[in-house]
Design a binder for these strands. Structure first.
Length: 683
RNA sequence: GCACCCAUAGCUCAAUUGGAUAGAGCAUCGGUCUACGGAACCGAAGGUUCCAGGUUCGAACCCUGGUGGGUGUACCA
């Protein structure tokens, strides 16, 4: 079995995330009308496409529904003032069936208003298509491998895992809905040092009864115990160095300060001084932390005794890991015993989150391929022996990518290379998305660099990175005692808070319907989980975000609960309509008439669903979808307030507005579904 | 030291990737209505888009230089 030799190198068409490659119903229709007109002046295909891409939905609704911003950039090319260009284009355009007006404004903007009739017709088509809401599938589907969640199975999942899981799940759902082939792979950490830790812990610290009763809890306790000893030993080891470093840093600061005093205007010196100050501050912080760790440990004499009898524990752990990798029978047996338990534990979390994966190979799966990866890199002269480790040195980086340690062990870089090669061979993807914390960006840059060099040149390799989850203090989200927050307790808390907000007796009384306890529990679960997921997805993926439980379960503002509530309102009005004889069949057959401003605005928003989904996948940004849904819910509220539905003047209007309401609900439900969030019929 | 990311209203975030007068929500202030489910809707106020240059018809966005913050940086993942 030669994974390297069997590695696919055949060529595929290059992958470009261009608009033309994705479904865009309205935009592509309008653009297709502009294209022949522009082609009479523009020969250059690239310029033509670039111009067409300047036709966009209008940012400012008071100006236009859609606008073409293409006349201005063409003025030099065509040697005509932009207004003249716009006029010439307009003269050749045939948009009569789609638009009610086409006008020129400002320096040469061409503004389009959609005709209410065409809009109504399009939405009726969407309404008739329950499954897809008339969202078309892409002409040229791509194969995506999405690598996300990927927790270390030996430790409990915590808040840090939620973003990768939620974002990756949403990306996979949206891409699938758009017609792409998506392969999701949960690249579990099931083979690394953490297993060395629990194996060591199991051998030396286990509580037999506890393990028999609840293996996962006991393994997790063992993990924490080993971790605790290691950090204590680290602190003890680092303490003298830190204590020595501080006077040096103090001296450095004093020197820098005196230099600044001598020439106060020198910016460089000032910078050096402030940098010295920061360094000293960091040293103090580190020292305090070490002292704290030691003090805490020392208050527990039994613990100190344990730590002393297991000196250099981190080395011992590495030896256990190494034995496991070398096939040591005892360690392998323990690993085989532990793994199903660990997996079961994380699966319960995934089940609760309703997240599923196509594959869950995990790091261990690639273990046999690692020697070949290293051989291949050596054979290509890409890797060299440096200080006894096998390293790949890359342009632009000080530190090499280490693929094999001095002791012969492989690292996650090695596994990642093997994984990419395997996926290339097995799935032949057009794109491989790694939904991983931004802190690993350098690792992925190096990884992609290596993968390009070994021949993976036709696949879009993308580190879909995201920011850190912060607490209200602006620091990484931790409990008051400083430990990471367990994921399950977080979910429980969110559901509990959702219960308090949504199932408040006064509120339910005004809703006018009695809910059973089972219904209430279901609602709280859907709203609570939705809140956590939505809070994560609604922020720009790349920025850090502040975790605020209080805010995320509210029914007001940009929250999932507000959108879920809007959906429930659409269902409520349709139920009421049904009892008045406006049943589903009549609504389906009814003609939609968009007679008023709020109806038009809402309708236009609904029409944009597909274009927005496509746009959100250009840079893999689910927050464009959350924003769209929030805006849709708000426009529905506004419509609902201003346009009586069941109390409208005549049955035709009632039916038309019910149809619009139904489509709004369906769009909200589908949008939330694509985010991995559910809805309830009443709340 | 080097590399990457970030800086927009008091706060949390947008801005269709270079388009018109930079938008929402919270919070603040005002208004509507005995509600097709009021945790609603309508409105006001709030900005030198960190600073200084540059590129061009046009810059929050691109380039250069700075400032401030975050992250990573040789055998953990």
């Amino acid at each position: 079995m030669s994974y390297v030799a069997g590695f696919r190198v055949d060529f595929k068409p290059p992958v470009h995330p261009f608009f033309s490659s994705v479904a865009m119903r309205v935009l592509s229709l309008i653009r297709s009308r502009f294209a022949p007109v522009l082609a009479t002046w523009i020969d250059d295909q690239e310029l033509l496409n670039a111009s067409l891409e300047r036709i966009v939905s209008s940012r400012d609704a008071t100006l236009a529904d859609y606008q073409a911003n293409l006349a201005m950039p063409l003025q030099k090319k065509l040697g005509k003032p932009p207004l003249t260009i716009a006029e010439d284009i307009m003269a050749g355009l045939d948009l009569g069936d789609i638009c009610s007006s086409v006008t020129i404004a400002g320096q040469g903007y061409i503004n389009l208003r959609l005709s209410p009739e065409w809009l109504a017709k399009s939405l009726s088509e969407a309404h008739a298509d329950h499954e897809r809401l008339a969202v078309t599938k892409v002409d040229n589907p791509k194969t995506y491998v999405i690598d996300f969640s990927s927790p270390n199975v030996a430790k409990p999942m915590h808040v840090g895992h939620i973003r990768s899981t939620v974002i990756g799940d949403s990306l996979s759902k949206i891409l699938r809905f758009l017609g792409h082939k998506v392969i999701t792979d949960n690249h579990l950490g099931d083979w690394g040092t953490q297993f060395g830790m629990i194996i060591y812990g199991y051998k030396h610290f286990r509580d037999e009864d506890a393990f028999a009763r609840a293996p996962v809890a006991e393994l997790s306790r063992l993990y924490r115990e080993v971790q605790r000893i290691i950090s204590y030993q680290d602190a003890e080891r680092k303490l003298p160095t830190l204590e020595l470093a501080i006077p040096k840093a103090e001296q450095k600061l004093a020197d820098a300060k005196s230099k600044v005093a001598a020439s106060p205007k020198d910016k460089k010196l000032a910078k050096e001084s402030s940098s010295a100050e920061n360094q000293l501050k960091e040293l103090h912080e580190e020292l305090n932390k070490a002292k704290e760790t030691i003090d805490q440990a020392k208050s527990d004499t039994e613990f100190v005794a344990r730590a002393q009898s297991h000196a250099d524990l981190s080395q011992r752990v590495l030896r256990e890991t190494s034995k496991l990798h070398q096939g040591d029978a005892e360690n392998l047996k323990l690993w085989n015993d532990f793994l199903p338990n660990c997996k079961e534990e994380i699966h319960t979390v995934y089940q609760r989150l309703h997240v599923e994966f196509d594959y869950e190979y995990g790091e261990s799966y690639y273990h046999d391929m690692l020697p070949m990866v290293v051989e291949d890199l050596l054979g290509r002269s890409m890797a060299v022996n440096s200080d006894g480790a096998i390293c790949v040195f890359l342009d632009g980086y000080d530190a090499p990518m280490i693929v094999q340690k001095q002791d012969g062990a492989y690292l996650y870089a090695t596994t990642d290379i093997a994984t990419a090669m395997f996926r290339e061979r097995e799935f032949a993807p057009d794109a491989c998305l790694y939904v991983v914390d931004h802190r690993q960006s350098e690792h992925f840059q190096k990884l992609f660099d290596v993968l390009r060099k070994i021949g993976i040149t036709q696949t879009e390799l993308n580190h879909v990175q995201f920011g850190t989850v912060l607490g209200k203090d602006g620091k990484p989200f931790k409990t008051r005692s400083g430990t990471v927050v367990g994921l399950e307790s977080l979910l429980d808390e969110s559901v509990e808070r959702a219960w308090q907000v949504v199932c408040d007796p006064d509120r339910l009384k005004s809703a006018g319907s009695e809910l059973t306890d089972a219904e209430k529990r279901h609602i709280a679960e859907v709203v609570g989980l939705g809140a956590i997921k939505y809070a994560d997805l609604c922020h720009n993926r790349t920025s850090n975000y502040v975790f605020d439980m209080e805010k995320m379960v509210q029914l007001v503002g940009n929250t999932s609960a507000y959108i879920q509530y809007s959906y429930a309102r659409t269902r409520s009005i349709l139920r009421n309509g049904d009892t008045e004889g406006y049943n589903a069949a009549r609504i389906s057959n009814a003609e939609m008439v968009l007679a008023t401003g709020p109806e038009m605005t809402l309708a236009l928003q609904l029409l944009r669903f597909e274009d927005m989904l496509a746009q959100s996948m250009v840079d893999y940004l689910p927050n464009l979808l959350t924003e769209y849904l929030y805006e849709t819910a708000r426009l529905f509220s506004s419509f609902f307030e201003q346009c009586p539905v069941l109390k409208a003047d005549n049955p035709e209007t009632v039916l038309s507005r019910l149809k619009l309401t139904d489509l709004t609900g369906a769009t909200l439900r589908k949008g939330l579904e694509l985010l991995g969030i559910g809805v309830v019929e009443r709340m």
